[in-house]
Design a protein around this nucleic acid. Structure first.
Lengths: 253, 253
DNA sequence: ACCTGAACACCGTTCAAGT
DNA sequence: ACCTGAACACCGTTCAAGT
C-alpha cells in the first residue's frame, strides 16, 4: 500500500495558518447566498434527494432551524438552486437569419446545464420560472422567435412547450443516474439498466405486443443526444410553420 | 346547529348486518391487488405525496412492514398504480386514413386519465413503461404510426417524445392542484396562482425583460387544453413530415 | 435581528420473532 | 408463507428561548 499521509490518519489539530475543513468553517455569517451555494455542492455530489434542510444545515455546521431565517422552505431552496444553475446558460444575441439554429443551440445548452447538475431538472418541471436568470432565458427565447417572425401568440405557447420538452428530457436522462454514490460513475448504472430493459422487451409475447417486440432494439437504442435532437427538430419545424411573411423573412432548412 | 346523528357521536359497536367502516375491514388477505387499489383511493383523495407505505398500511389496518411481502418498495407501488391507471385509457383500432387524428385523440385520452388521478403523472415522467397496460398504450401508438406510414426509426423516437410531452403537460397542470385537502376544489388554488403570476410578470422591469413584460397576458392566459392542443399539433405535424410514400399514403391537413 | 435546541409529527426499510 | 412489533436512521417545520 503506498504511503498516503492524508488517508485514514487520526484526527489532527488544525495547523497554524490553515483553516479546519468542515467543523466551524463559518467566519462569514449565514446568508441565502451561502446556503444556496452549499446546497449546490450537496446536489452535485449526491443528487437532489440529498439536498434536505437538515443535510445543508449540517454542512454549514448548524441546525436545520437556522436556515428558515433566509429561505422560506425546502421548495424555495430548490427553486433558488435552479435559478442559480440557469445563470450558467449562455444567451446568444438574436440573429434573425439564424433564429431556428439559435433556438436549438439554446435548448442544447439548457439541457447541458440541467444534466450537469444531477437530477436538478426535476425541480424545473414542477415550477413556473420566476427567478431572474430563468426569466432571462425565457426572454431570450421570446426575442429569438420574435426576431424570426413567429407570431406573439405562437411564441408564448412555444416557450411553454419547449421548456416542457427540455425539462422532461433532462429528467428522463438523469433520473436513473441520480442515486449513485459520489465515487461511482453515474452513467454506468444507466447503461446497465438500458441493457436489462432491452432483454425484457425482447422477451415480451409478440402476439400481444408485435410492434414493441419487433422494434425492441430501436426503442432502447438511441442515446440521449439523438432523441433530444429529433424531438427538438420536430418542435422547431412546427413552430416555424407558423412564421408569417414579416421583417426577417423565412429561412431555408 | 342541525341535529346530525352521525356527526361527533361517541364510538358505537357495529350493528348486526353492517360491516365496520375502517377497523379490521379485512376478511380478504393482503394482496398486491388490494394494496394497489387502496393506494389509488389515497391518491385520488389526497395526492401522490400522501401515498406512503405507512399511510397505505394504516388504511389496511396493518403495519408498514406487511406491505413488503407483496411490493418491493414505494417506487414499485407507485409504478403499479400508474399501470393500473393506464388500463383506463381507451385504445382505438388503427384506421390508416385517420392516423394523425387517432394519435391526437389517444394523447388527449392519456392526459385526461393522468390528470384525473391528481399528480400521478409525476410517476410516469421518471420511469420507463414496463407494465402490461402501459406497454399496451405504447404498442397502440406504434401501430397507429406504422399504419400511417411513419418509418420505424421515427416512430420509435416519436413514442418517447410524445410520452414526455403528455407526461410533462399533465405534471404542469396538476402540480399546483396536488396539495389541497380532500374537501376543497383543487382548481381554485391553481387559478389564484395564475392571477398572482400575471401580476408578477406585469411588475417586471420592462427594459430588462421587454418581451415578457409586453406578453405577460399571453404567457399566462392559455388554459391547459389549448396549450396541450398546440404542442400536440406541432409534434404530429413534425412526425407526419417524415411519412414516406407507402401503403397508407399521405393525409391532407 | 439572527440563531439555536428541542420537540412534534412524520418518513422508508429491515429484521428477528411469531403464527 | 405470511404477517407483525419494534427499531434504525432519517425527514420538514415550528417555537420558545437565547444572544
Amino acid at each position: 500500500m503506498p504511503a498516503d499521509p492524508a488517508a485514514d490518519a487520526a484526527p489532527m489539530p488544525t495547523p497554524p495558518g490553515r483553516r479546519p475543513r468542515k467543523a466551524a468553517p463559518r467566519r462569514q455569517p449565514l446568508s441565502q447566498e451561502l446556503i444556496v451555494a452549499t446546497a449546490m455542492r450537496v446536489l452535485d455530489a449526491e443528487g437532489l434527494d440529498a439536498v434536505t434542510m437538515r443535510r445543508v444545515a449540517q454542512e454549514l455546521a448548524t441546525g436545520p432551524a437556522s436556515l428558515y431565517a433566509h429561505v422560506a422552505n425546502k421548495e424555495e431552496l430548490h427553486e433558488l438552486m435552479l435559478d442559480r444553475a440557469a445563470g450558467e446558460i449562455p444567451l446568444p444575441e438574436p440573429d434573425p437569419a439564424r433564429w431556428q439554429e439559435q433556438i436549438k443551440e439554446l435548448a442544447f445548452e439548457s439541457r447541458r446545464v440541467w444534466t450537469s447538475h444531477r437530477d436538478l431538472a426535476r425541480v424545473s418541471l414542477g415550477s413556473v420560472p420566476t427567478g431572474p436568470n430563468l426569466l432571462a432565458v425565457v426572454e431570450c427565447q421570446l426575442a429569438l422567435m420574435r426576431a424570426g417572425g413567429v407570431p406573439e401568440r405562437v411564441a408564448a405557447l412555444a416557450v411553454d412547450t419547449l421548456g416542457m420538452f427540455i425539462d422532461a428530457d433532462a429528467v428522463e436522462d438523469t433520473v436513473y443516474t441520480a442515486k449513485v454514490g459520489p465515487g461511482e460513475d453515474p452513467w454506468a448504472h444507466f447503461h446497465r439498466y438500458i441493457a436489462e430493459l432491452r432483454e425484457y422487451l425482447y422477451a415480451l409475447p409478440p402476439e400481444r405486443y408485435p410492434n414493441i417486440a419487433r422494434m425492441a432494439r430501436l426503442l432502447t437504442e438511441p442515446e440521449g443526444d439523438e432523441r433530444f435532437g429529433f424531438g427538438l427538430d420536430i418542435l422547431v419545424r412546427g413552430i416555424a410553420s407558423y412564421v408569417e411573411d414579416g421583417p426577417a423573412g423565412r429561412k431555408a432548412v
